[in-house]
């Protein structure tokens, strides 16, 4: 059975792009337009990996990340952060506290092949 990836991003272009990329690579894809919807969706579909945007309305990526990591049923799902912020530290700031760090942090714009390879590595494919 194909592994499932959940894309949480408020930018439609990003959702369409990543979803086409993952589907073409043989994955199943779900998507959500903000952090709130993303957490709801994650609880329903139990994805194998989540890609999470940082700057989003209705629950930012940082808040969504904190909730995903603190929810015992979702805490094990690997998370790839996609950020347009110039410094990765902007995401890892004090707000993350002692929570485990994400599996990967990728800069936007993405390098398509590198990004896909990173996702495959995390999923063990």
């Amino acid at each position: 059975m194909a592994k499932k990836i959940l894309i949480i991003d408020d930018e439609k272009d990003m959702r369409v792009y990543l979803s086409t990329l993952f589907k073409k690579a043989g994955y199943e894809v779900d998507s959500a337009v903000n952090g709130e919807e993303g957490i709801r969706q994650a609880k329903i579909s139990r994805p194998d990996l989540i890609t999470l945007d940082v700057l989003m309305p209705r629950k930012s990526g940082v808040k969504a990340y904190q909730e995903l990591r603190q929810d015992a049923t979702l805490a094990d799902i690997p998370i790839v952060i996609l950020t347009g912020l110039s410094q990765q530290e902007d995401f890892f700031g004090a707000e993350l506290g002692s929570l485990p760090r994400p599996q990967a942090v990728c800069d936007k714009p993405i390098d398509r092949d590198d990004f896909l390879q990173k996702v495959k590595d995390i999923l063990g494919d």
Binding site: D13, V16, Y17, T20, S86, K108, P109, R112
Partner: peptide
Amino acid sequence: VAGMAHRIKNILMGLEGGIFVVNT
């Protein structure tokens, strides 16, 4: 200028993504 370069890069990614989706 740095911000603008990043913004243009993002737009380029959107264009690149669009072309990728059309080709797919």
